[in-house]
Computed example of a mutant assay.
Amino acid sequence: MERCSRCHRLLLLVPLVLGLSATPAWAGTPSVDVLRALRFPSLPDGVRRARGICPADVAYRVSRPAQLSAPTRQLFPGGFPKDFSLLTVVRTRPGLQAPLLTLYSAQGVQQLGLELGRPVRFLYEDQTGRPQPPAQPVFRGVSLADGKWHRVAVAVKGQSVTLIVDCKKRVTRPLPRSAHPVLDTHGVIIFGARILDEEVFEGDVQELVIVPGVQAAYESCEQKELECEGGWKERPQKQQSHRTQRSPKQQPPRLHRPQNQEPQQQVRELGKPQMAAHPREGRHPDISPP
C-alpha cells in the first residue's frame, strides 16, 4: 500500500501532458536556461519575482507548494552532454537541505542531482549504474544553507566533478563513472524536489544554466563580475564583505551583495512543464534581502 501511495504521489508531481513542441525556441543553442525552459518568468503558482544578487537583478522566490517539471528531451533534444557545467546563482532558506535540480530516467532512476545545504551533494548515475551510491560525491565543509546569495558552478569532466562557490572555494571529488557515460533523456527534469522525498527547495534563484563542456564553470567568475550600480564592478574573489571600502578620494557606488531508485514505471509518461502540489503543505517563510 505504501508503494502504491508513493506512486500516486509521483503521478501528482509529474502528470502526463501530450502534444509537446518538437522544436523548442532555444533548441540548438550551446546552453540551456533551465529557469526559462521551466517557465519561471511566467510566475506560476508558488513563484514570484524578487530582488536578485544585485538590486537591479531579477530573481524568483520559490515557496513550498511550487514544483516545476518538464520532459528532459524538451530541454536536451540532442542528448545530455557527457561533460558539462552547471551554473546557478541561488539563496536558500537558512538551514535548508534540499535538491535544486533532479533528472530522472524513463524508468524512474535518479541520474543527476544537485542538493544544496550543509554539505553539498552531487548525484550522478550513468546507464551502467555508475558510480554506486557509496562513491557519490559529497562536498563536506561546504555550506550553502546560510541564507545568503551564492554563485555556484559545477564542472563535470571525465572521472571528476569540481564545485566552485563564490569564485573562492574550489573542491574536486572523484566521479567514477563509465568511460562513455550516457544519461537517458526520455524521463523528466524536476526543479526543487525529488520523487518520494519530503524535502523541497525554498528560497531565491536568479540563474540556473547547463552548458556543454567545463569551460563555462571555470570562466563564470570572469564573465559574471558583479555590476550593481553605476556600472561599477568588483569581482567576488576580491570582496571581503558585503560592502566595499571607500577611499577618501574615490567613492564608487555602494555594492550590495548579498538516493533513490523507485519507482520503475511512472516517469515514462511525462509531458510538458506543469505545476503540481507537493504532498507536504506549508508556507515558505519570507527571506529578507541580504
Rank of each mutant, 00 (worst) to 15 (best):
R48C: 12
A70V: 11
R121N: 12
D146V: 00
L11N: 03
G203M: 06
Q245Y: 09
Q67P: 02
R73G: 05
W232K: 01
H242S: 07
A50H: 14
L35A: 08
R49S: 14
Y60L: 02
Y124V: 04
E219M: 01
L86S: 00
R194A: 14
G129S: 00
E234C: 04
S288K: 03
S288M: 00
R130I: 02
A50L: 11
K238P: 00
R130V: 01
L270T: 07
L38P: 10
S178R: 02
Q264S: 11
T92L: 04
F139S: 06
R194T: 14
A66M: 01
Q127Y: 05
P99W: 12
G79F: 06
S21N: 15
A59N: 10
P134F: 14
I189T: 15
E269K: 04
G19C: 10
L20K: 02
F122W: 07
P30C: 01
T172K: 08
V17Q: 12
L226G: 09
R49H: 10
L183Y: 10
Y60I: 04
G203V: 08
K238Q: 06
G282T: 07
R243V: 11
P41I: 09
P273E: 14
A27H: 05
L255A: 11
L35N: 04
T102V: 08
A276K: 09
F139Y: 09
R91C: 09
Q74Y: 13
L68R: 11
I53C: 06
E227Q: 10
E227R: 11
Q265E: 10
E115Q: 14
R170C: 06
G79Y: 02
P181L: 07
D126A: 01
S5P: 04
L101Y: 08
G282V: 06
P252G: 06
Q97Y: 09
I210L: 15
V109P: 03
G95N: 02
Q274K: 14
F76L: 00
Q245S: 11
L183E: 08
D197P: 00
F80M: 01
D204S: 03
R39K: 14
S160Y: 01
C54A: 13
G230L: 12
V209M: 14
I287F: 07
